[in-house]
Structures are given as C-alpha cells and as structure tokens.
Design a protein around this nucleic acid. Structure first.
Lengths: 270, 270
DNA sequence: GGAACGCTTCGGCCAAGAGCGAAGCATCCG
DNA sequence: CGGATGCTTCGCTCTTGGCCGAAGCGTTCC
C-alpha cells in the first residue's frame, strides 16, 4: 500500500503533487482506496440497498468484528462516502449522497462482466429468487419489477430511454404527477431526473435518478411494495399487483413461473 | 493492505464469499483497489486524456520508476482496466473501455468537492489556462469549448439535457448527420448515445457518450481542433473558430479575455 | 442502581504490497 | 554487429494498514 494518498511522504516523487492537480487522480485514489478494501466494499454494497444500517449490521455483512467495522466507518465518514446519524444507542449509517451510489454502480458495471466470466456463478437459492423479482437498488426499484416498469413506460411513450440516459416525454409529464410524483422536484437537482441503471439479475436497464427514487418512494407510500426486514428484497402487495398494471400497464411479472417460489420465500422470512 | 481481494486467505471470515455474490462488492473492491493507489490513479487519470500512452510516459506522469510502473501495468491489465498494444519497441497503453472512463469520472465527481474545499487550490499557470479552454476528456471535448457546445446545442433545441442524461431531438437529428455524424452508429451500442459529464474546470456539463465521442472525432477530422503533443490540451484552429460558430452557433469562448494567454501557451508547447 | 448492549479506543501482531537497484530481454539504430 | 533504448523480471527493504483482544464509554432496560 505504501504511501497511500499522502502525497509528500516520500520526497522521491518526480514532481510535486500540486502541479498535477487538474491532471492526476489525487482525488480518484483517495476515494477508490476507501472502496478498495473488501470489508469496506461489502459495507458500501450493503448500503446500496438504500436503507440506513447500524454499525453492527454492517460488521456482520462484511464478516468482521465490531471494532474493525468501527475503524472502517471512521474512515468512510472522513472520506465523505457515508453519513452517520446517532439514534439512541444505535448508530445508523447511510450513503452520503446519490453520487456515491452512482460511483459504486460505475465500479460494479466494470466488475460484473469479470465476475460472470469466471466460475463465480451466483447461487440461485429461493432468497435470490425473491431478490430477482423485486428489490431496491439504492433508492429505486430493481429486479424484474424494475425492468418491467421501465419497459412499460417506454413502450407507452412516457419515457424515452437510451441506455444510461432517459427523458420524460410530454405524455409522461401527465402520468407521473397523477401518480403523485412531482417532476419539478426539489431545486437541488444536481441529480438527473431520469437515469437508467443496469440490472444485475436481468441485464437490462431499470429506472434510476430522481424519477426512479420518487417511483419507489410513492410505491412504498401507497403500499404497493413493502420492504422485507433486513434485506433489500421488496414484496409486491396485492394492491401493487393491481396498481402497477392499472396505472403503468406493467407486465404482471409476478405471475411468471418461478414467482410463486419467490413469494413463498418472502413469506418465510416474514 | 491485508488480504486485499483474495477472499479465502484468512479463514477467519464470518461467511464464505460465495454467499455474498449478489450482495457484496467483491467486484467493487477488486476494481477500486486498483484505482486506489496514487501511482495507478495518476496513470489512469493521464489515460483519461483519451490518447494511448507508452509505459515510460505513464511512469513519468505518475512520478515513479519504469520498473514500478511496469508492475502496476501488469495489474491494471489483469484487472481489465487498461489494454496494451505492442508497437515496435514501444508499448502503448489505453483505457480498456468507455466503461472504465465512466467509472473514473464517477469517482472524480465524488472527489472534486472535497478537493476544492480543502486548501488544495489548483495552479493557474498558462498551461492550465489552455487546458481550461479546450481539452479532451477521454474521447470527447471538455473545457470551455465543450461546455459552450453543449450550451449552444441545447439552446437551439437540438438536444435536451438533464444533468447526466441527454437525448437528441428531431431538430438535432437533422444537424448531426449534416455535420458528418452517424447517429445510428455501430450496433454495439451498449454505450449511451448522449450523456453529459461534469466539467472539472467549468463545473458545468459537457457532452459525452457516443455523440460526444463522434463530435470530437469529426472535429479532429475536419481540422477544427488539434491535439497538443503529449497533453490532453486541444488547440482550436481558425477553421474551428469559424466552424463551431457557423454550424453549431457556439459562443466564441476563445475570444474571452484570458483565451489569448491560452493560445500563446499552446503555441509555446508547439 | 446494576446489568446488558452498542459502539469506540488502545495496543500489538502480521501480511500485503509499493518502492527501488540491478540484471535480463527484446527491439531498433548506426 | 555492437551499443542504445524501452520495458520487464528478480530480489530485497520497509511502511502501511487491516485484524483482533481487551478495556472504556455512553445508552437503555429491568
């Protein structure tokens, strides 16, 4: 590891770091270094589920002891990757911003081909069946549900998607507010309204960005989906089964052959 | 650094890595680890310029000896971040794919606020003035020129941009082919046609994606811009000054007060 | 108040790996 | 063909930082 991201430790450097500001990746290295440890990466990946988790849960997720996790968390906070909120004797950790989630996605996109070409095939257990049907991906919906929604919206001309990018059409500008989503949104809006995000399990794009986040938030609010405890799996409720079809003309992916298995798995986890 | 990304080295792990496939960032860690070393990050940042560089040039860029650079390159190749082509006794290195560039951009976006809030102010030398005016950003144009082009295209309704995403409008579908760009492009097209990328120096979006790449390629072809040797700086030619205004109704940013300084700097580098 | 719990701090151990010098291969040039 | 150049391999040193056990601190519950 050597000097890590502390520039002027070895004076053997060919030229001072300050000279290289615009050109080098001083910032890249510091951030990537934080993500480059397996334990920290596991924590961050767990936080990609979108829920705030306690330090203890993260430790378990990463397979390390509480004290080790604690030191990692200090670094992640200092590095601005996660934010922490105290609540009683718990300490809730979440990703610091959507930009962090996007950076992580960028790295995953890079990693996933390698993962699949090697022998590391993913286990197709019942739990994963449920996750493949519907789950959160940071702050939006993924899995077959997420992909089906994106498909339906594009098919009906409410969005135009071009891998990675997406725009709401005039037709869409009517539908989303009717569903209870404010497209104008907060003026903070460094964040794209509509992005797509490649789905791990489906290998097809689903909706991300502000719109994707709003869609999940509103779906939870309406009780169309419910979070499974301690997991990023989403359960689709009967109300959701009607709603997604009625409002978005979404394909009923939950009726697919192996969806029953997924449903049982979610119930088993109650 | 400890076990880095070799999972089952310590048997102290709480649960086997295979269990964590969908959930953890095994892949994240491996990739981020490679980007997390300052020397490697500097090399990758240099390659973001879009040109293939030799191993020696990269060593100089990172401020390390040739042998150290060599070992880093082996890792980067193994990790699939860069690709190498032998040519005579040189070895040319380039980023392996646009996805790598995008992942790096994601990390830079995260890092840059931190960089500016700390005392690390960037030097405002003449060389950087030239870079701020126009430069390559992997395979597209950045700097004031890149931003001005994006602005002009959006202002004239040829694109609709929403930070991060972008779509070509019907009006644009006429202009780009006339300029010599095939919007349909190669059917490979996992790559988005139109993305935006946050400009380091301008803090505003410029065009990336397939369209951004095609715009740069065609501009080079027409001799509107020229690469400065051994740098990612672009020089705007007289033909370009006319062309960007005539074809895209772009603001003549090269006439701004400090542009003369930039021009001299480019000439000095001849 | 005392015990349980969640998390952090301290201290020590240890392996990974970043760095360089020197030697070894190739390739190109005169 | 001999020497220069570009890069890689080998052998080595040394720092970093990840890991845990034990102890400390603050909160909550009984």
């Amino acid at each position: 590891m050597a000097e890590a991201f502390r520039p002027d430790k070895h004076e053997g450097r060919a030229y001072p770091r300050a000279m290289t500001d615009l050109r080098t990746g001083g910032g890249i290295a510091a951030t990537a270094f934080l993500m480059g440890d397996p334990a920290r990466a596991a924590m961050l990946a767990a936080l990609l589920g979108g829920q705030a988790l306690t330090a203890g849960e993260l430790a378990a997720e990463a397979g390390i002891t509480a004290q080790t996790a604690s030191s990692h968390l200090v670094r992640l906070v200092e590095g601005g990757l996660v934010a922490v909120e105290r609540q009683g004797r718990h300490r809730y950790v979440r990703l610091a911003s959507p930009a962090v989630a996007e950076a992580l996605e960028g790295l995953m996109a890079l990693a996933s081909p390698a993962v699949t070409t090697t022998a590391t095939r993913r286990p197709r257990g019942p739990r994963d069946a449920a996750m493949r049907l519907a789950r959160t991906c940071y702050d939006h919906m993924a899995g077959r549900l997420g992909v089906a929604l994106a498909d339906a919206l594009e098919r009906d001309g409410r969005l135009r998607l071009d891998s990675g990018a997406g725009l709401v059409t005039p037709a869409g500008e009517a539908v989303f507010p009717a569903f209870g989503i404010d497209l104008a949104g907060p003026a903070t809006a460094r964040r794209p309204l509509c992005r797509t995000c490649l789905d791990w399990s489906e290998r097809r794009p689903h909706l991300a960005g502000r719109l994707g986040a709003a869609l999940l938030a509103r779906s939870l609010e309406l009780g169309w989906v419910a979070r499974a405890p301690k997991s990023r799996t989403l359960a689709i409720t009967p109300a959701g089964e009607r709603g997604f079809v009625d409002v978005f003309r979404c394909e009923p992916v939950w009726h697919a052959p192996d969806a029953a298995e997924a449903r049982r798995a979610v119930e088993r986890q109650h």
